[in-house]
Each structure stands twice: as structure tokens, then as C-alpha cells.
Amino acid sequence: MSLKAQLQDDMKSAMRTRDKERLGVIRMLMAAIKQREVDERIELDDAAVMAVLEKMIKQRRDAETQYRDANRPELADAEAAEIAVLEHYLPAQLSDAEIDTAIDTAIAETGATSMRDMGQVMGTLKAKLQGQADMAVVSQRLKARLQG
């Protein structure tokens, strides 16, 4: 079953169970997917839906951080609840050891030796790790590896 179909089914079940919070988050995600489809005049596949999902999670993490910094815990908690619903649709996250292995493989494939090669390695890693790891963490680990 495609990710969009799963979202549709989950939206229907949230309506049946009257889970307003979950329904609102799924509707927001479906609206973002539909907006991108209309803007680009294409039908999004699972990889593109995953990209929309990751973007929404990143936006909510940033908002949560800002709310916590501004001493607004009620708004930060609302963002965290949305993140929890959205993360349900991500594939299983990789462990640190698996991320390190992927970084080593990508460095070997691209022949990277310094920070100048970071963009090329990140391009390779992003294609492989899409949705399975936080790319900010991957970037930090790669930077540490290429510097030292």
C-alpha cells in the first residue's frame, strides 16, 4: 500500500474514532501533499511524499525549539504532539552504527578526502537514507569524519 493510501485510511479511521488531534495533523499533511501535486502538476510517489513529511517534521521541530526558548510550553507540547503523529509514517530510524557504516560506504564510493567533497557525499547519503535518519545528524557526523 502506498503512503498516500495509508494516510487516507488513517484519516478515515481517525474520523470514525473522533480523534481530532490526529485527524487534524493527517489533514494538514494531506493538504501539503495535494498543494505540492497541484503546484508541480504531478502525482507524488512515496519518496516525494516522504520528503514532504520530513519537511513538516523539521518545521515542527524548529517551532518547538522556538516555543521552548520563548517559555511557551503549551505551544511546544502541541508541536511535539504533531511530531509524534507525523513520525508514525517514517520508516524505522537507523542506529548510530548504521549511520556510520553508511557514511563510510558513501565516502569510499565518492573517494572523498576533505570538506570540499562533503556536498557530493551528502547527495549520495540523502538518496540512501531518506526518511531513515535525521539528515542534520548525518551531516554533523560526516563533517566530523571529513575534518578529522
Rank of each mutant, 00 (worst) to 15 (best):
D45C: 05
R145L: 01
A144Q: 08
A78F: 07
M135W: 06
S114V: 00
A14D: 08
A70W: 06
S95P: 06
R116F: 10
Q35I: 00
A127G: 12
L23G: 00
L146T: 01
A31G: 08
E64I: 05
A78V: 12
S139D: 03
A47M: 06
A136H: 03
I83Q: 13
D77S: 14
R22I: 09
R41M: 10
D104I: 02
G24F: 06
A106W: 08
K34H: 06
L146P: 02
A133L: 05
L129G: 07
T124Q: 10
E64C: 12
R141M: 11
R61K: 15
A112P: 02
M56D: 04
L44E: 07
Y89F: 15
D62T: 09
D69S: 12
A80R: 15
K126N: 13
V49M: 02
Q140G: 00
A92T: 15
M56P: 01
T105G: 03
A70D: 14
S114R: 07
I83G: 10
K58R: 13
D62F: 00
M118C: 01
G131K: 13
L3Y: 02
D62M: 06
A133P: 08
A92L: 12
T105Q: 14
T101G: 09
Q130S: 13
Q8F: 10
R72V: 08
A14P: 10
T65W: 09
I26N: 03
T110F: 01
K55V: 04
L142K: 04
L142S: 04
M11I: 04
G111L: 08
R141N: 03
R72L: 13
I57P: 03
R116V: 09
V121I: 04
G123K: 10
L3H: 01
D77A: 15
R68T: 14
S13L: 14
A5C: 00
L53N: 03
L44G: 06
A84L: 13
V49L: 05
Q59T: 08
M122L: 15
L75E: 15
D134H: 09
D69L: 14
Y89I: 08
L53R: 05
E40R: 12
V52L: 02
T101L: 12
P73S: 11
L75G: 02
D134T: 04
